[in-house]
Design a protein around this nucleic acid. Structure first.
Lengths: 240, 240
DNA sequence: GGGGAGAGATGCCGC
DNA sequence: GCGGCATTTCTCCCC
């Protein structure tokens, strides 16, 4: 390699992104302990001290560290990259450095995302009839005072309704959450009857059973701007 | 750039990892919809069709796709990388390609990790007095028959005990889980009284309150082989 | 393949 | 800073 140790350490110190491709083994100690024996990996060090170690397969980094202080040195004929954060330590023994590059990257853009659970609760607030005729959401301020309930309102008989939104399949944990909110609201307001509703595109069989056990209800509702595309009806750049 | 489009498409087809550093914008459509305006990014394509787009900061990819079929083409004077999986679509418009590299990586190693919640429940099975004198865990087979309960046993008075382990701070969701398991066991066994215990190094104030409301208990227990190191007492490679 | 649950989860927001 | 909670969560295990 023609990039030397000094240049890499300078890049680490001056917050320049670095990409290494190498054969290495990895030790980690911190929130847990891990060891990864020798193999080929891609190592990325970002401007903010993020360290990522990627194997040739899999979507998640096999090891990582945030806000790391990083150095690279020679040791026993190998390169050794040491990474340290608060109470965490990571050592990479690099037996072969295939490539190393230092970059200057500028990116001020933030991702815009549509279709989150928050978008779903916004949609219900704006279209309360999605739940049922006569459903009247209460103000957002009211709702925050009693916790992180997604949607909170009155039905046509002025019975309080707590709604938990899930953007995909509602599971047992979703019913847990709803049950906890309903219990809390009953206690806070001194009410005997509060309705609980899960709004989601799907619900697991066990979750549906638990829902029924608690006399709660389910509404099949999908997050906004969410289409399960079949690829045939969509014009895309790759089609040109 | 001296790596041409044909070589990149060949790499994508033949499962060779590719690293691109470029200025680009990104559209995603699938489980949600997203748009990311122009900026400098690192793009990794792995041997298994994993696509990762990383900004110069942050530990998570800003966009990603698994099992993707990937092509790169010219379009309107730019490079356009299109990625497609089941019902997901991602387009990257590359206005400037700073570097592109194709790799041949071999890695058959799997990470070994110590200190998980499973290690914690193993520790309690092997050292039941960590919970209290006279606690007798039941067999692992027994426990799997009734669900995913971490530890399941009898106290010295032969009262059933359900234990939920958390490797860090136990929160409201942990109490939800314990409450659901205890309810299930009471129902399955037709019992009036079943004890519930959370074993974790910490517990949040609200979770502790909810625990008390349900007459459950808490034990301060840490996962095995877990040390909060201070860096001074540890010899490391970087110290040499 | 779906359901259930952990993760060295991460990231966001609110107090 | 901690607490609560969503996530294009991801991953693993088990049915």
């Amino acid at each position: 390699m023609d990039i030397d140790i000094a240049a890499l350490n300078d890049a680490f110190q001056n917050n320049k992104p670095v990409i290494l491709v190498c054969t290495c083994s990895v030790h980690y100690s911190g929130r847990a302990e891990s060891y990864l024996s020798e193999g080929d990996r891609i190592i990325i060090v970002k401007a903010d001290g993020t360290l990522l170690i990627h194997q040739p397969k899999g979507s998640n980094p096999v090891n990582y560290m945030k806000n790391a202080t990083i150095h690279i040195n020679h040791h026993d004929g190998n390169h050794v990259l040491t990474s340290q954060a608060d109470k965490e330590f990571l050592d990479i023994i690099i037996t072969k450095l295939h490539s190393a590059s230092i970059h200057e990257l500028e990116d001020n853009a933030a991702i815009e995302l549509i279709g989150s659970e928050r978008d779903m609760s916004d949609m219900i607030y704006n279209n309360p009839s999605l739940i049922e005729p006569g459903f009247k959401p209460l103000s957002r301020e009211e709702h925050t005072r009693y916790g992180f309930i997604d949607v909170f309102g009155n039905d046509k008989n002025n019975i309080l309704v707590v709604i938990e939104c899930k953007r995909y399949t509602a599971d047992l944990k979703a019913v847990d959450q709803l049950e906890r909110y309903v219990r809390k609201i009953k206690q806070l307001k001194g009410l005997k009857h509060v309705r609980g509703i899960i709004a989601s595109p799907k619900i697991s069989p066990n979750a549906l059973q638990m829902l029924k056990d608690h006399k709660f209800e389910w509404r099949s509702i999908s997050p906004p701007n969410f289409f399960e595309r079949d690829g045939k009806s969509q014009k895309r750049l790759g089609d040109y």
